[in-house]
């Protein structure tokens, strides 16, 4: 019985291991700039995943730049004040800081829905933005901060830093995807769907809607912080714009672009977004936003469930994030 279960689990994991393997050899085949683009796309995909997780409860965060910036500035501050350069510790720090922020703001935000929730998240992110801008002595103001490449488990990556960051990001992304997938198949994951469908019934079953939303928000914030931290590693420069509303808007944009029918959809959305932006910018530096806008329009019209629906056109409607269809 157990053996059969193990082998079934292995069979289920095989395609993902194959994908992971392919992604692992990819940087050897790609030019450096493309490897860098993928690294950034993967890191930002974590923030997008955070937005998507909230969207499953019908909550649109227009302020996820807040966690993105919090994760990134954790790296900056830790390097500047604590002389910390170890990636694992910095990642841990970013997770703790963004988690603590989400725990605090969540107390307040979990009371709100719809446009109020969206506007409040936006407001908080803009508060952080202006703090990052104003506290020049601490944050470097508009100049932002330069973050030296971290050591990874004590190893200084040196010339191979680009590739090292790619792998580090890939590992973090894979872990976060696995954890999030597990979360979504858990009672709490289903509670989020239940809350989206019918809050009254949730309360009338004896569960707290606010608590469900609070915990979901916590996960979402931590994912955002992790993404910001990884971007700081690979880009090496952080700025207040990380918390600016256009950045948050990009994350929402990419969530819609990729869809949220699977935890992998945000990754797809993020990669496509970075590629399109890159090429659109190269083609027409002044109107690239217009190209992006046109693409979003087409997606909303023809692929309302995002790019991911191209890969999984008949995903079960019920609980598409989990493996529920496998019975």
């Amino acid at each position: 019985m157990r053996g059969a279960q193990v082998s079934r689990t292995l069979a289920g994991a095989a395609p993902w291991l194959a994908v992971l393997l392919a992604l692992a050899i990819l940087p050897r085949l790609l030019p450096d700039w493309l490897g860098f683009l993928l690294t950034v796309a993967f890191a930002k995909a974590l923030v997008v995943l955070g937005v998507a997780v909230l969207l499953r409860s019908n909550l649109v965060s227009f302020g996820h730049g807040l966690y993105f910036a919090a994760g990134a500035y954790t790296v900056g501050f830790a390097a500047k004040w604590l002389h910390l350069r170890e990636a694992v510790l910095l990642i841990f720090g970013a997770v703790v800081v963004s988690g603590a922020l989400a725990a605090l703001l969540g107390l307040f935000l979990a009371r709100y829905r719809g446009i109020f929730f969206g506007m409040l998240t936006l407001a908080f992110s803009m508060i952080l933005y202006s703090l990052l801008l104003r506290l020049y002595w601490l944050t470097g103001g508009t100049d932002g901060m330069v973050t030296a490449p971290p050591t990874i488990l004590g190893v200084v990556p040196g010339a191979a830093a680009g590739r090292a960051h790619y792998y580090l990001t890939l590992v973090c992304l894979a872990l976060a995807l696995a954890l999030t997938r597990r979360w979504l198949g858990s009672p709490l994951g289903y509670l989020a769907s239940a809350i989206r469908d019918n809050e009254i019934r949730v309360e009338y079953m004896g569960a707290s809607v606010r608590q469900g939303i609070y915990r979901t928000y916590l996960l979402s914030g931590v994912l955002g912080g992790l993404g910001g931290c990884l971007v700081a590693f690979s880009v090496g420069h952080i700025a207040p714009e990380f918390s600016y509303w256009t950045q948050s808007g990009d994350f929402v944009f990419v969530t819609v672009l990729g869809g949220y029918a699977s935890v992998f959809a945000p990754v797809m959305g993020s990669v496509v977004f970075e590629l399109v932006r890159n090429y659109a910018y190269a083609l027409s530096p002044y109107t690239w936003q217009m190209s992006l806008g046109a693409i979003l329009l087409l997606i909303v019209l023809f692929l309302p469930r995002g790019l991911w629906s191209l890969l999984a056109p008949r995903a079960p409607v019920s609980s598409p994030w989990t493996s529920s269809s496998r019975r």
Binding site: R182, W183, G185, S186, L188, Y190, L191, A207, Q211
Partner: peptide, 15 residues
């Protein structure tokens, strides 16, 4: 799962 009070569990499977 709500009846059993475990709706806050984010680790084990619902099923």
């Amino acid at each position: 799962v709500i009846r059993s009070g475990r709706q806050g569990d984010c680790w084990r499977a619902l099923r």
